[in-house]
Nucleic acid binder design. Structure first.
Length: 491
RNA sequence: GGGGGUGUAGCUCAGUUGGUUAGAGCGAUCGCCUGUCACGCGAUAGGUCGAGGGUUCGAGUCCCUUCACUCCCGCCA
């Protein structure tokens, strides 16, 4: 053993430490029991997945790390080319185009534990810069075939590496539209029993006199609500805290009352008096709730409601301790819309992957209502965390031109930006599709961690800096000169 | 780009309405004890209270600015 200086942090301890110290001395941090075991788990999970994929007949291939910049999606990391002055490589955001080209090449089942690079801001479950996906693609398949492979893989992996129970062995499929209504998000935590309902109609009734909501509804706003079971005995502070919390989240608040039956059905709470008995019965019918339950209501635009109901579902469930931490609840989110309208520019844009196959046989009429077109695009979600998204790809160049034209790209632009892809698809491409589950997030769930850095050996901090290696760093002028680069000094 | 939280010894933290010399536990160093294993006992060292400015007779504490880390929004097809 080498000699040892005084340690900047204790190693034999479960104590939490500032991330800054942990990341700077990651080699010491990694000696600590919990994270050491997490990293070993990660290694084992990856080996297991490799083995399972190989058994299923998938071949593992590497794809280029230095590739070309793509116009859609996240910001690219750029790498200047010495031999081609003024030109740049980009690090792949995912091996998306390559894996489709692999299908065209006649390798029908591909996978890779693929590094992906995106220059976007970090979150607790999102590393800045780089992360790993189990990237896979299959030829001559439909959506169900991909589901079968991935579902089996997930079930086996999670059963092998965790004692937690799976809520569903057969993952439920929820349409994007339904998810946005019932959960306010396309990554719902199904351990949470709370459901969102739309009760806009109630506020068009004569016998409801809650004028603030009625006025807003008249001008196009919607009302959505969350019902909590048997909360009649909760103190006033419980309700007020949630209302206050909602205001802190930027919403106008959450109106609430509790259903009571004291001689007759009534609503208890600050706004209860605005609802007639008949209106209350109608709400109870619509939201499937009973005497003793409470209701929280928000009014606003669709976007505003989705945001606040999603957060409120989580907040209320935590306050009421409704989430069983010993369960994994998987689901598929399906039927994503092909396009969406950008509210700022009013332009039609691809809502997810522009290379996805639209559903059905598109007539000219369908193309005139692009927002109605659904795609064979899907996500897999576990406990409210998006594990991956995938799609059946569009392997028909003519159809692709049509779809891109809706999003405002002409043929020349597509030929230029996606030349390799379009060219390949015009030589007899097989129908194909795939998906790419996030390895880091899978291990994070299995390790029961809330932060992705706890399952990453040498992570960067939130500002995309490696505090141990001092990356990114300045380079010497000779290097820049060789690359034909000069720097504008900031400020 | 925006909002919240945190920042006091190597580490984790306490520090009252602004008041004299800023403390504790762990760790470190030295010594003693010891079939020890999160040993025990004693002593010692260790502080720009994140940084800068302001208010005040007096600032760890109040005000302003700024930096770092972190969580969230935007962003991540």
């Amino acid at each position: 053993m080498g000699i040892c200086k005084e340690l900047p942090m204790p190693i034999f301890s479960d104590q939490e430490y500032a991330e800054e110290i942990r990341l700077k001395y990651r080699f010491l941090d990694l000696r600590r029991k919990k994270i050491h075991e997490n990293i070993i788990l990660r290694s084992k999970v990856i080996s297991y997945i490799r083995n399972e994929m190989t058994k299923l007949g998938f071949l593992e291939f590497q794809t280029p790390i230095l590739t070309s910049s793509s116009p859609e999606g996240a910001r690219d990391f750029l790498v200047p080319s010495r031999l081609n002055p003024g030109k740049f490589y980009a690090l792949p955001q995912a091996p998306q185009q390559f894996k489709q080209l692999i299908m065209v090449s006649g390798f029908d089942r591909y996978f890779q534990i693929a590094p992906c690079f995106r220059d976007e801001d970090a979150r607790a479950d999102r590393s800045p810069g780089e992360f790993y996906q189990l990237d896979l693609e299959m030829s001559f398949v439909e959506q169900e075939d991909v589901f079968n492979v991935v579902e089996k893989l997930m079930v086996n992996t999670f059963k092998s590496f965790s004692n937690k129970k799976l809520m569903f062995d057969k993952f439920p499929k929820i349409s994007y539209k339904e998810a946005m209504l019932k959960y306010g998000t396309d990554k719902p935590d199904l351990r949470n029993p709370l459901i969102v309902n739309d009760i806009t109609e109630i506020f068009t009734r004569e016998d409801v006199s809650f004028e603030i909501f009625k006025k807003l509804v008249k001008s196009g706003s919607k009302v959505r609500c969350i019902v909590t079971k048997n909360t009649k005995d909760k103190p006033r502070s419980f309700f007020d805290n949630i209302d206050k919390w909602a205001k802190g989240e930027g919403a106008s608040g959450l109106a609430y009352f509790t259903f009571e039956n004291d001689k007759d059905i009534s609503a208890k709470g600050p706004i209860g008096k605005f609802f007639s008995k008949e209106a209350l019965l109608e709400i109870m019918k619509k939201t499937n709730c009973e005497i003793g339950d409470s209701i929280f209501m928000a009014c606003g635009t669709k976007d505003e409601l989705e945001k606040i109901t999603s957060l409120a579902r989580d907040k209320i469930a935590r306050d009421l301790d409704l989430i069983d931490e010993n369960i994994f609840a998987f689901c598929w989110i399906v039927d994503y819309p092909m396009f969406e309208k950008n509210e700022l520019t009013n332009k039609i844009e691809f809502s997810h992957n522009p290379f996805s196959m639209p559903q059905g046989n598109l007539s000219e009429k369908d193309l005139k209502n692009p927002l109605e077109i659904l795609a064979y695009q899907y996500d897999i979600v576990c406990n409210g965390i998006e594990l991956s998204s995938g799609a059946i790809r569009n392997h028909k160049p003519e159809l692709m031109y049509k779809l891109f034209s809706i999003a405002g790209y002409d043929k020349n632009q597509i030929d230029e930006k996606f030349s390799g892809m379009i060219n390949a698809l015009s030589y007899g491409a097989p129908p194909h599709g795939g998906i790419a589950p996030g390895i880091d997030r899978i291990v994070m769930l299995l390790a029961n961690e809330k932060n992705i850095r706890e399952v990453t050996m040498f992570p960067m901090n939130q500002n995309a800096q490696d505090l141990m290696m001092n990356a990114p760093s300045e380079v010497n002028p000779d290097q820049l000169k060789e690359l034909n680069l000069s720097l504008k000094t900031k400020k």
